[in-house]
């Protein structure tokens, strides 16, 4: 026994430390985390860092570029097209998010009632969410077509309008049309998530509220809505982030037109960097989105902080 220990001390030491390394909670946690971390670093942190770096250079396609400091930012801040894109993006995000929230909540409340074919209707609601964005964008492209629009056709047949509506050719029509398409696509996500939240509310709370004398509206205002706020905060954060960074719908429907009135920061960045070849400038445009997104996340983070009523019995004071 002791002979073996003396003659071969090295493998045993190694063995022990290896065993220790494999059972130590922190080390084990590190090993488990490693694949996910590697993945995130490779596909998220690296591109983000590269993007930010490029925004400080005058890189063009096919040319490395040198560090130019804040020159790109100075340039885009003074660019009226960029200012318009920021306005468009904020307008698009705000209006679409408010509409999506209102319609999604309304649908969720409707679906939470006992309806015939409930499961079927719930499945149907999800369809816009399942269809690939580009496909639905192409469908909307046809719906909004200046000549063949089914909407114009329908309204004409009903005698409500005399000529076709130029959905995508007029600045405000185009803005509202792309918002409409975005809302159509985004509502199911919000409706289904809020529905899931609604179903966690115990029916006896509504019965108690009924006996307490609450009307339908008061029940929503004082019971449903407050209990739902944490889920609303999560789902609306995601919705705002997705809407703010929207690219596919705009790219297919208007490609930023007419005259940049539907250009969002995401599409402008792409058009500038990839199509225009001015990579540094395009990177600056997309980096400029980060403060807005961080702002949205901060708002929801503070809204999301566990409210006192959600805290468990461990927190008694």
């Amino acid at each position: 026994m002791s002979d073996a220990a003396i003659s071969a001390p090295m493998p045993r030491v190694f063995e022990r430390s290896w065993a220790q390394r494999m059972t130590d909670r922190n080390m084990l946690g590190f090993w488990f985390m490693l694949p996910a971390a590697a993945f995130l670093i490779l596909f998220l942190v690296y591109p983000l860092g590269l993007g930010i770096w490029l925004s400080f250079t005058d890189a063009r396609i096919g040319r490395g570029g040198v560090f130019v400091g804040l020159e790109n930012y100075e340039w885009i801040l003074g660019d009226s097209k960029f200012q318009l894109a920021v306005f468009n993006t904020l307008f698009y995000t705000f209006v679409a998010s408010v509409l999506k929230f209102a319609i999604g909540l309304y649908l969720a409340i409707l679906l939470n009632n006992h309806l015939p074919f409930k499961a079927f209707i719930r499945a149907i609601i999800l369809v816009p969410f399942i269809v690939p964005t580009v496909l639905s964008a192409i469908a909307f492209w046809w719906i909004f077509d200046p000549q063949f629009s089914v909407l114009s056709w329908g309204l004409r047949k009903w005698g409500l309008i005399s000529g076709n509506i130029d959905f995508l050719g007029d600045p405000w029509n185009a803005r509202l049309s792309v918002i409409f398409a975005n809302v159509w696509r985004g509502v199911p996500f919000i409706a289904i998530t809020l529905l899931a939240g609604l179903q966690t509310v115990s029916p006896s709370l509504y019965e108690a509220a009924t006996l307490d004398g609450a009307s339908k509206w008061q029940m929503f205002r004082h019971v449903t809505y407050p209990i739902l706020t944490p889920i609303i905060a999560v789902v609306m954060t995601f919705s705002v982030l997705f809407t703010f960074t929207d690219f596919q719908l705009i790219k297919v429907l208007t490609n930023g037109g007419p005259a940049g009135t539907t250009e969002l920061m995401a599409t402008m960045s792409y058009n500038t960097a990839i199509l225009g070849g001015r990579i540094g400038e395009g990177a600056a445009i997309s980096t400029a989105m980060i403060p807005f997104l961080l702002g949205a996340i901060m708002i929801s983070w503070f809204g999301l902080q566990r409210r006192k009523w959600q805290q468990g019995s461990d927190n008694n004071d």
Binding site: S202, L205, E207, A208, L211, G213, A214, H222, P226, Q310
Partner: peptide, 18 residues
């Protein structure tokens, strides 16, 4: 219900959590 002038105690208490 609200005009019946009754009050009910539920099995799961049904207290408003918020």
């Amino acid at each position: 219900p609200k005009e019946r002038d009754i009050a009910m105690v539920f099995q799961n208490y049904a207290l408003y959590p918020h």
